[in-house]
Design a binder for these strands. Structure first.
Lengths: 271, 271
DNA sequence: AATTGTGAATCACTTCACAGCA
DNA sequence: TGCTGTGAAGTGATTCACAATT
């Protein structure tokens, strides 16, 4: 049902979005992290390192598989799963092969086994406590998410600057002041900090989260954060997303124009 | 929900774009595309295409440059700009080179020129009307963003299913019913649809947006959308973002373990 | 017969390193 | 001298295509 694969001629390209990068701080929207510095990854003992891009897709497969399991499916082929996840089957199989060999040739994969292996690989067998900083519109939405997606990411601290908000429970949890970030995060062993503040406050919040010992930061503020290398930063940037879409609209308009013989150098070549 | 940003992940889309262009002054870039040699491509004109990854970074550079301009900067070197954007300078220069040659050797770039060229390339010289579907916590946050980031993305329609919400103004704009999506989007010439509904509603909303003629969709719902190839879909998936962070935490723990001489299986042994 | 798993090829992106210019 | 712009090399990710396996 879906994806047709490109053959020659038609150049169908999957847009799989490549994401990629992210450096010491945060950079583009995509996957993250690149070892960039120096030698980078030494030799992960047992880990065959998984490409960054594949990690993001594993999370998607996990969601699809969970839905399938709920509907009673017990086995699934790479063709089915890849269609549901919107990727091609070769990519899916390659991605799964990073986990090990858990499929049966001629048959497919057992859903429950795959779910277990992906969860293990993504580190989902342990809980990751989350703090949300900036209880504005977005922060509210995040705090109310009620124990974040998929369980395993309980929100255990909320922070804001506004005195009127301090102490007020949001989603069942009272809001603390920004100044308390380091102490509270340390006490509650927060491992992921979510920044939903205005851009001007973001760097300072980031610094406090780091002081509080958080290991990862998910940044919704439209700024490039500077953080030490041991802290993983990812960003979600609405403005960037919209601008990328804008680019594609423009590109498309352009194409149409040249197909109509408009711009271009007058060299329209059509069949 | 919120979720992460991802790249486009899912829907199959094709973008092969044989482009053509590259006129001395007005060239509109295209995303990189499969060269596919062969006889097919009949376009002798050297296509100027911008890698997808570079497009995302251009949006970041634009924001940094705007901030610099506000502070009175008139010129900037690749070194300065790249540091502020969190990338290395070679990558920055390469990215800017896709726009054309707008720097001065030995000096740097003129901020205002760069801003103008990036805006042109990203198609920001024209407005892109936005509709937000699903006025829950997140939709509310988005609607109130007040004419989205950076101007140029005015929110001109809101939709929800809840009867109690229909007609109620949110951020100054009344909410319409989901059923009206195709008609309203067409009337108001919406070009970008933002889906902030629960996952079960997302595909149907997507279909209606497409019926209403929107060209791009930004999906916050945690599902893989199927959309026709001429519609650009991007997704922001909070669960995926958190799981990627989780993976990095696990990986890091793993590495530490092996640095301590632990072999494998999870058991931490400290010397 | 069907489907996985994967080496090899291809394609995309990044980084290097330096020629060219102001 | 300083900094841009870019070919070329390097790295990483995707796709192909088929042998291996049930």
């Amino acid at each position: 049902m879906v994806a047709q694969r490109g053959r020659r001629g038609g150049s169908a390209r999957q847009a799989g979005t490549p994401d990629a990068d992210n450096a010491p701080t945060a950079e583009m929207p995509t996957v993250a992290d690149a070892p960039v510095n120096g030698a980078a990854v030494a030799d992960p003992v047992r880990a065959r390192s998984i490409p960054e891009a594949a990690v993001a897709r594993l999370a998607v497969y996990l969601r699809v598989l969970s839905a399938m399991a709920e509907q009673g499916a017990t086995t699934v082929s790479s063709e089915e799963l890849s269609a549901a996840a919107g990727v091609n089957s070769a990519k899916l199989r390659k991605d799964l092969s990073y986990l090990g060999s858990y499929g049966t040739r001629g048959v497919g994969y057992e859903v429950s086994v795959l779910v277990g292996q992906i969860e293990r690989t993504l580190g989902l067998t342990r809980k990751h406590k989350v703090a949300v900083v900036g209880i504005g519109n977005l922060g509210h939405a995040l705090a109310n998410y009620g124990g974040f997606p998929g369980r395993g990411f309980p929100v255990e601290a909320l922070f804001d600057l506004d005195p009127d908000l301090i102490g007020v429970p949001v989603g069942g949890l009272p809001v603390s002041h920004l100044d308390e970030i380091p102490q509270v995060c340390a006490e509650r062993e927060i491992s992921i900090g979510v920044i939903a503040t205005p851009p001007t406050a973001a760097q300072s919040v980031c610094d406090r989260l780091v002081a509080g010992g958080v290991q990862c930061i998910l940044n919704f503020a439209p700024v490039v954060l500077q953080a030490p290398p041991h802290v993983e930063v990812r960003k979600v940037d609405l403005a960037v997303e919209l601008q990328i879409l804008s680019f594609h609209v423009a590109r498309r308009a352009d194409q149409e124009a040249s197909e109509n013989g408009v711009a271009n150098n007058g060299m329209v070549v059509r069949s």
